[in-house]
């Protein structure tokens, strides 16, 4: 692949999609902002942003066929990156403000409120990158920008060889939670790389680099 990787930022009516698009351009991608199924399935990479309540994001995602688009891509080993609530909805269940909602169920587990004296967890935190992480390559000592109250606090998917083990990266606010997951073609970050300064741009570049070899 000699051209810039083509990335679709899924524009399904959630969050600050422009920031994600601008940051990806800076990282070297050829970016399209759309909810068009064909474009989203065929792109080299799909970024799924998400801001707001879990059930609201799920509603908007389902309404635009987002779940099917993600399924179709993963069936073809095509990379997907979920960000913030775009990560949370990849789990099977979310509980937020007393609303219990089903997620996309790509990974088992529940996303719910962190136990911490101050919420939202807002600001720059370190991440303990999992062994062999491609996303955090060269970024092990950097801080990333988080803004959320809920998170996946445990990892429940048992992966049996020969399938590669997912790379889990953790952070902590009151208690440990998953800051990022790299599971084959499906990756996600709880923080906002598009709001994490130059470290975030480099993380997106690392993800773009992984698209080329898929």
């Amino acid at each position: 692949m000699t051209h810039a990787p083509r990335v679709v930022v899924l524009d399904y009516g959630s969050g600050n999609v422009h920031s994600a698009a601008k940051a990806l351009v800076r990282a070297g991608a050829d970016v399209t902002l759309t909810a068009d199924r064909k474009a989203a399935v065929e792109a080299d990479g799909l970024l799924v942003p998400g801001v707001g309540a879990f059930d609201a994001v799920m509603g908007a995602l389902s309404g635009s066929g987002g779940g099917d688009i993600i399924d179709a891509r993963l069936a073809g080993q095509r990379p997907v990156l979920g960000i913030c609530v775009g990560m949370q909805v990849l789990f099977s269940r979310g509980v937020e403000r007393g609303v219990d909602a089903a997620g996309l169920g790509q990974w088992p587990g529940t996303v719910d409120q962190l136990s911490a004296p101050v919420l939202p967890h807002m600001g720059w935190n370190t991440v303990s990158a999992g062994e062999g992480s491609r996303l955090f390559f060269g970024l092990e000592d950097e801080r990333f920008y988080f803004v959320h109250s809920n998170a996946a606090r445990s990892w429940e998917l048992d992966v049996i060889p020969p399938f590669p083990r997912p790379v889990l990266s953790w952070s902590e606010h009151g208690e440990p939670f998953l800051a990022a997951v790299e599971n084959g073609p499906l990756s996600a970050t709880q923080f906002h790389p598009e709001k994490s300064g130059e470290a975030g741009i480099r993380l997106l570049s690392n993800w773009l680099g992984s698209l080329r070899s898929n």
Binding site: N125, S128, E172, H173
Partner: peptide, 8 residues
Amino acid sequence: MAVVTRVI
């Protein structure tokens, strides 16, 4: 590991 003071 903790969130740090922000300067704005």
